[in-house]
Simulated assay, not measured.
Amino acid sequence: MTSTSADGPSDAALVRAARVGDEEAFQVIVDRHGPGMYRYARRLVGGSDADAAEVTQEAFISAWRSLGTFAGRSSLKTWLFRLVHRRAVDLQRHRRPTPINDDLLLRMVRPAQDNPLQQVLDTELLTALQAALDELPWHQRAAWLLREVEGLSYDEIAEALALPVGSVRGHLHRGRRTLAERMARWR
């Protein structure tokens, strides 16, 4: 593995090494991108740890098997998020929708420090946000999570969701508008 940086080998170097069977290089890919993939999967599948782990694992199995077809037209991260998205869609097709129960949304609100009233308000805010996210259509929720929580660009979201950038912008606009309406009392 070459072209190392302060953060270790580049994704491109890891992909090249993993393509020729370097399992350690693939493990670095898993360690580097797995937490974000898992967070995204968990939100998409309704907060189930078991389902999120299954979706993430299936995405990594698919990635390992198809590294040879990864052309690098998108970033490795975007490609991996797309694999997670596909596996989550497959899982949801076979199940009824379930609400999001996502403890990771706690990061979006700073915890109250020794203030019981603020703790109650924070809990109510997170509950309201989770309920509002539950009500968003699939693509709006996916686009919002990838943009606002995972920090992907519009182009990366388009690649991950296999949608045109214009559709991503539309889904984000409608999702943000719906969330703003539902969260208006928290302004």
Rank of each mutant, 00 (worst) to 15 (best):
L152T: 06
V89E: 12
T78P: 05
V89L: 06
L104E: 14
L121W: 01
M108F: 12
L104G: 13
P116G: 13
T78Y: 01
R96T: 09
D114L: 05
R96Y: 01
R82Q: 10
L152Q: 12
A88D: 11
R110I: 06
A88E: 08
R141W: 06
E148F: 06
Q130T: 13
P97N: 09
L80W: 05
I100V: 15
Q119P: 01
R147G: 05
L91N: 11
W79R: 09
R147D: 05
V89I: 08
Q140S: 09
L125T: 13
D122A: 14
L145Y: 00
L152H: 13
A128M: 01
T98D: 02
W79A: 12
L129N: 02
F81G: 09
L125Y: 10
R93W: 02
R110P: 01
L91H: 14
D102L: 06
Q113V: 12
Q118D: 11
A143P: 07
L126G: 02
L80D: 00
A143E: 03
R86M: 03
E150K: 10
S74L: 00
Q140R: 13
R141M: 04
G151T: 05
P97I: 11
A142W: 02
D134I: 02
G151E: 06
L117V: 11
N101I: 01
D122K: 07
D134F: 04
T127H: 08
L105K: 07
V84T: 14
L133C: 05
Q118G: 10
A128G: 03
